[in-house]
Structures are given as C-alpha cells and as structure tokens.
Computed example of a mutant assay.
Amino acid sequence: MDIQDKTVIGWREWVRMPALGQAEIKAKIDTGARTSALHAYFVEPFELDGRPWVRFGLHPRQKDTEVQIECEAPVIDQRRVTDSGGHAEMRYVIATTMVLGDQAFDAEVTLTDRENMLFRMLLGRGALKPRFLVDSDQSFLLGGSKFQPPGELNLS
C-alpha cells in the first residue's frame, strides 16, 4: 500500500468493535505498542466446544463504571506483555473486528485492567499497519470529539 493510500488518524480516535457489544471506545494510538490493549475489569477463562474462551467485563467510557458490557471471545493466545513502566503480566489475547472511520479490520487485542489509566484502550501498531498514518498533532480526525463518539447526538 502506497503512503497516499493510507488514512491519516490523530493520536486519539474512537474505535468500535462490533463483536464486543458495539461500544465505541476512545483509544490512544500507541505506535510504541506492538499489540492493542483493552480494559477488562474481570477476566474469566472457560471452554466452549473444547476450545479456550474468555468472558470479561468492559467499561467503555473513561471515568465511568456505570456502563458495563459483558463480552465473550475465543482466546487465540496468552502472552507475557511488558507495559511502558516495565511491569510484565500474562494476558489473554483475542482477535476481534475493529472499525475506525470507514475501515473495518481484524486485530489482536490483549485484555488487561486499565481502570486507572486515562484511556480504556491502546491501539497498537499491529492494528495500524498497513492502513493508517498517525498525525501526532491531531485528534479525532475520523469524527467525534473528546466527549462524543462520531454519530452520537449532542443533546446539550
């Protein structure tokens, strides 16, 4: 894919994951992270048809624990992930479809407790390539604003 064919995104964008309850989540674009990370406030492994799955809760909005979505997904891996502070943990990895603007694509996502983090999701470079370029001086180039996902009505 040539550079002119790539979509330019800002350092934060709204991401929708149709298989995980259609929630729109404000994500920080993190080109330093290989894999994307999603906030999960509980993670329960189980088996379905002899395959490993995981059930987890998702709080899609920053600083909001009222909105809760319970999700289930097949586990594709478990990986040791080291965060930017140097702390390592084993995480479940799922694959899900993500939608950014008008592009839908599959990406790997690790599940971790991000309750005390500013963003409930980090979008890593594995999800970004080969389709996006990041303008680190911009935000929400694909729509929405700091407080509203794209398409959500402003009733105030």
Rank of each mutant, 00 (worst) to 15 (best):
P74Q: 11
G143P: 09
P130N: 09
L48I: 00
M90L: 12
T35R: 03
F105W: 02
K129H: 09
A73V: 03
W14D: 03
P18Q: 15
I9T: 06
V134C: 05
R79P: 12
E108W: 09
K129G: 07
D2R: 07
M1W: 06
A127L: 04
T31M: 09
L128H: 15
L123M: 09
D77W: 02
H87S: 08
E66Q: 11
E72F: 14
H87A: 09
L123W: 07
D137V: 02
E24V: 15
D106Q: 12
V81Q: 01
A127G: 15
D135H: 03
G10N: 13
N154T: 02
I25K: 08
D49T: 03
G32W: 10
A104Q: 09
R125W: 10
T35V: 10
S136Q: 08
M90T: 15
V93A: 06
V81D: 01
I29Y: 12
D102H: 08
D5Q: 14
K28A: 05
K63W: 01
P52F: 04
E152H: 13
W14Y: 11
E24R: 13
A37D: 07
G144C: 13
T82D: 00
G143A: 07
S136D: 04
N116H: 06
S36Q: 04
D137R: 09
G124I: 07
E44R: 11
R91E: 04
D5L: 05
Q4L: 12
Y41K: 05
G124Y: 04
L100V: 15
L142G: 14
G85Y: 05
V109P: 00
I69T: 02
R55H: 03
N154W: 04
G32C: 02
L128P: 14
F140R: 03
V75N: 02
F132S: 04
P52D: 14
A95T: 08
F147M: 11
S156F: 00
D30V: 05
P18W: 15
P52M: 06
M17Q: 06
P149Y: 12
V67P: 03
D30K: 02
V134I: 14
A40K: 05
Q68M: 12
E152F: 14
S145F: 03
V109C: 01
A88I: 06
E66R: 11
A88W: 10
A27D: 03
S156I: 05
K146Y: 06
Q22M: 06
F42G: 01
D30M: 02
N116R: 05
Q103T: 08
I25S: 01
R16Q: 10
D2W: 01
M117L: 10
L58K: 06
R34Q: 08
T97I: 05
V93R: 07
Q148R: 14
L100S: 00
V8E: 07
V67C: 08
F46L: 11
K129S: 14
F119N: 12
G10T: 14
I69A: 02
L141R: 05
M1C: 08
R61G: 03
E115T: 15
H59K: 09
N154A: 12
Q148P: 08
D137T: 09
I25G: 01
A37S: 15
L20A: 03
A19P: 01
